[in-house]
Design a protein around this nucleic acid. Structure first.
Lengths: 155, 155
DNA sequence: CTTGAAGTTAAAGTGAAGTTGAAGTCAAGC
DNA sequence: GCTTGACTTCAACTTCACTTTAACTTCAAG
């Protein structure tokens, strides 16, 4: 199958778990690269698989594609990231996850404190108070809200 | 100001923290109701504030508007929800939050186990393995991912 | 009765992360 | 030389939760 050292779209799709359409999308967005055959077909270096793994991991941690793009840019151009690269980045991600967990736990605690009361008062209830929303950041005005996260597949 | 027992859009907006546009949107979506003046302007019952608090709380917990709509439908038509209503619903929400926290913690643990190795192997790394994504539900194919949650306001 | 703030509508826009469809190209096999 | 199947492009569509816009109308105070 891969006696060659380059991969087609469908090979990369199969191995990475991303749909071909997603791979094309990522290329448009500058997240991955591909060379072309004379016929214009994409050929991927095997290293793209590592890059895609990185993308999926970062995405799992909750980074936007834009953030991922920036973070990929901070990686060494065409070599395998070193331990220190990975250390720096994973520390960043861990902080992100810690914040998310903390926010959810705070929300859950508020919910617990509401369970007995049935209040849902606009003024008093921690979980419905718009000024006290866990997801509201200091500088973001308006109604921030917590996310889809693990939402049921909707049908 | 409110010697009357009905509220205008902007009063409800001010008190609930939702923008008038959001209130109109919720009405279109069947989440809230309003009567009309002869001139066609909306007038809200005071009870809408409690309903909106409920909507915001549910939204904070991560429910979609569609789910919220269904859950509102399970509430008694025009009376204040009882403690047992609220108990049932908040238990549901708590489960949701517990799942979210668990998913994030699992992801964080995987990240921790990766920090030393720098692997990001498609086959081995728990955090990048598409078949093992915390957010991937059994029946949802394709690339599920963990959420925006607390993402920076992007500028 | 006038004036200006606040209200109305439908439709379009936003942004994230892609997917889908139509129409076309390419290489191989028969 | 034609069919088959995998590939290509590009634009348009999707979902969610709203917001914005444009073009009016209504309400309440003075």
């Amino acid at each position: 199958m891969d006696t060659t050292d380059v991969l087609t779209v469908s090979e990369v799709a199969a191995r990475s778990g991303f749909a071909p359409s997603a791979l094309r999308f990522y290329e448009r967005e500058g997240l991955v690269e591909a060379s072309r055959t004379t016929g214009g077909q994409r050929r991927y270096q095997r290293s793209v698989l590592r890059r895609l793994a990185f993308i999926r991991a970062a995405s799992n941690v909750g980074l936007t594609l834009e953030e991922i793009r920036r973070e990929l840019g901070s990686l060494p151009a065409n070599r395998t990231p070193t331990k220190s690269d990975w250390h720096r980045i994973s520390a960043h991600w861990r902080t992100r996850l810690d914040e998310q967990v903390a926010a959810l736990e705070a929300l859950r605690d508020k919910l617990d404190s509401c369970i007995g009361c049935g209040c849902l008062s606009l003024k008093q209830c921690g979980i419905s108070n718009p000024a006290d929303t866990a997801a509201t950041t200091d500088d973001a005005p308006g109604a921030a809200y917590l996310p889809p996260l693990l939402r049921r597949p909707a049908h």
